[in-house]
Amino acid sequence: MIGCYDFCGHYEWTFAWLERAGGPELLRDYWREAIALDSQRHAAELIQREGIEGMKKYWGHTLVEESPSLGFTITAAVDRFRIDMHDCPSKGFLVRNGLEQHRDYCDHCMGWVGPMMRDAGYVVDHEHNHRGQCWWEYRAPSAPPAAAAAGANDVRARPEWLAADAKLDRYEGATSPDEKRS
């Protein structure tokens, strides 16, 4: 049986398998069709219906369940919703267990969240450092990008954010993993 305890491990393995089987297009389709529109359809429905209030409800629940040690902070404003991930439970699982089949596991979040936000009328500003740390802002396309709304919670203030082996991937006003700026 495929379990949920080590989900992140076989999920990451699956990314590499899909890319071998059908190229990057099949993997993009998987994140959008299987994850955004099927697995996480409860998130899509909530955010389309309630906007930023829906984001608070969805991530307030799911991040606490996945990261009981609260390795993240959430900051909501009238025009945007922000997550600062200080210790990603998903990437952390892979790092601790030495699992790396796919070239950039972190892209999966933009792979499903990006299309979901597009459908709900939002765009995404995001950076990840491939070390289990990232930040996200979801905003209307007309709102200014990446306000410093997180204050003291801003993950970019951590000394390890730009550690010697950290490589930043950045998205601005994006809704697809193809819009990455490395």
């Binding site: 305890y5 989900f7 059908g22 069709e33 299987a34 099927d38 040690s69 267990n97």
Partner: peptide
């Protein structure tokens, strides 16, 4: 267990993704 987490049990909502993965693979491949 070959791969271990800091939590004693997984998040059951991940079963949604496994079910959706099967549906996708059956439809596409």
């Amino acid at each position: 267990l070959p791969y271990t987490d800091t939590k004693p049990q997984g998040s059951a909502d991940f079963y949604f993704a496994t079910n959706a993965t099967f549906r996708f693979l059956l439809r596409r491949l």
